[in-house]
Write a protein that binds this DNA or RNA. Sequence first.
DNA 1: TATGAATGAGCCTTCATTCAT
DNA 2: TATGAATGAAGGCTCATTCAT
Lengths: 193, 193, 193, 193
Amino acid sequence: MSKDKIIAAAIDVFSEYGYHRASMDEIALSAQVAKGTLYYHFPGKAQLFKTIVMDGFQVISDRIRSEMEACLALEEQIQRIIRHNLDLFLESRGFARIVFNELSNGIDSDVLDELKGLKEGYIDFLAGLLEEGRKDGVLHPVNCQLAAAGIVGLLDSSCNYYISHPDAFDREGLEQFLYTMITTGLFKNIDNR
Amino acid sequence: MSKDKIIAAAIDVFSEYGYHRASMDEIALSAQVAKGTLYYHFPGKAQLFKTIVMDGFQVISDRIRSEMEACLALEEQIQRIIRHNLDLFLESRGFARIVFNELSNGIDSDVLDELKGLKEGYIDFLAGLLEEGRKDGVLHPVNCQLAAAGIVGLLDSSCNYYISHPDAFDREGLEQFLYTMITTGLFKNIDNR
Amino acid sequence: MSKDKIIAAAIDVFSEYGYHRASMDEIALSAQVAKGTLYYHFPGKAQLFKTIVMDGFQVISDRIRSEMEACLALEEQIQRIIRHNLDLFLESRGFARIVFNELSNGIDSDVLDELKGLKEGYIDFLAGLLEEGRKDGVLHPVNCQLAAAGIVGLLDSSCNYYISHPDAFDREGLEQFLYTMITTGLFKNIDNR
Amino acid sequence: MSKDKIIAAAIDVFSEYGYHRASMDEIALSAQVAKGTLYYHFPGKAQLFKTIVMDGFQVISDRIRSEMEACLALEEQIQRIIRHNLDLFLESRGFARIVFNELSNGIDSDVLDELKGLKEGYIDFLAGLLEEGRKDGVLHPVNCQLAAAGIVGLLDSSCNYYISHPDAFDREGLEQFLYTMITTGLFKNIDNR
DNA sequence: TATGAATGAGCCTTCATTCAT
DNA sequence: TATGAATGAAGGCTCATTCAT
């Protein structure tokens, strides 16, 4: 159906150009659909963007949460989250960039707010996991929200680096680094009280 | 002089609106200068943007590097870097966002490349510091470039969180968290071989 | 039936928004009918508009003419015309506005011509009444077509004023003013040869 | 200058097509100016329209008021007003139509309100003249606002008729009819107490 | 008889850029 | 060195109309 073609095309175009440089013309062209058709299915550019982002996020979010239900050890959970995030960041690069980076540039503010909500929701979810770990005494006494936010940035930035330097190391190494960084930090000989 | 007024105004406007939403009209208005004057001093929007970003980055970069010259212990250096980064992120929020986030949204690609170069240069600088630590056996055997990239994302994201939740903790706490996270990681009881 | 629902809805929508601002979408929505259905029953927007206007006009016109058949005195006829016109203008405000004001704004010219014909036909009818009066020596020696046209404008404009200033006087007063204006004019002491 | 060309062209185009059918493209074309130039001089279509209407109205209004200052007899004033109105309606047909007819069709409501204000202002002015006459006992005891509103409609409609039937009578006859209609009404033999 | 997805021409507006002065 | 009027390509959006079902 047209709507599906539009969504697929919109993901491509938004991912490649970012919100502002993406044009409805381009999306229509890419979807092999008349421009008016975009407006038959979506009220406007901002809403189309929002739909795409929220739908995509929902899928990913559900996938992650579903695997996390089991009462695993926190280490195991961290490992899985890292893996899923890499899946997200590496497989849907453009999409991830949208959600995690492009939350400021003049999108209609109601749409913007919802997108920010998505990110916050994800951070909250991570923070919840960490919180449990903290209560169990597994973690240093940190602010879990802050830690979650930091982790998201760490993941994002590392993946970006990985993507632009694909030969420096492999995905395995990336996962390992992230796990190390999050759990034991970079330093070897500092007292780990 | 006109040029200086333009630069000052451009920093304000680009910071507030981001590259795309910032208009030459707005910059001219804010600089109290005719629109044509912008084009007398700069070849175009992209070049003006580039000038601002690179100049600003140079200043910051110099400041950081100068303090780092002394052969301090890595821990101390990390602490200083954290502090300087927070200065940068918190005092020049818009500017930092430009450099660290808006490197994708369809800026002329030659300008974009140079901006990416800035970020890479900064990561290289950080990586260099870490590299020394690694050689000295202070660090886990990680890819220092990757670690540096990750740290930048960690810093950015944490600051963002701090800015949008100013009451959850203070800057002192933020610095401490970052130091902990980078050096010893989140986990308490993991072997820190 | 669909067609009736469409007509009813179209009257509402055209009356409220005027020809141009009225959209086929809105009409379909208001008629609780699919948009395509409009085009099943009517060739297009202009034709739908025309149908509505002409049908509506026919009804009103018939009503007036039927009451006028009796060979009443001209004064009595004038009074009745005033009353019927007020009914028309006040009860079907939007409709009247369409017929009397919106005959210029770029409706398809064939439709436009027919609408103009309606107005002219009504003016002719009025003029015919006046003509008889003139022949009987009841009226000043005026061009009856012109007088009829003037009366229509007078009625329209007065009603508009009445509608936007409902508290200044009542309908009774409005009728009386119109009767005075048409029959004896505004001035008291001018020789009425 | 461009601005003057634009105004002249806009008067033509708005007059010919009415607000909605007039397009900025057409105006630019007619003004032999790039479309962007319209937006350099005016914030938008609605504002351009408003500017034209209000400026034009001011000119006419001033002209009429200036001639009316002398303390003439009311009959003389009526005659002059009729003459000036005919000038307005006949010389600036499109313009007059804009002001007196197109006050409903979905123009931005703030602009619309100002246009309505113009019309009301003119009616008030007329009403003021009539009021004096009424106090002097020259007029029947009518609501002068209503009478003024009615006169405007009468003038408008008569002129319209005159324009579409140029051969039926001459301007002289038109003026005479209006004067008769306003002062003594249509009827001959009614007591003119 | 009725639907509603799809169309595409046309509209208003924005904005980086140019150029004569 | 500075101006600001003018440009025109490009963008988002509306809406009457068509057509396969």
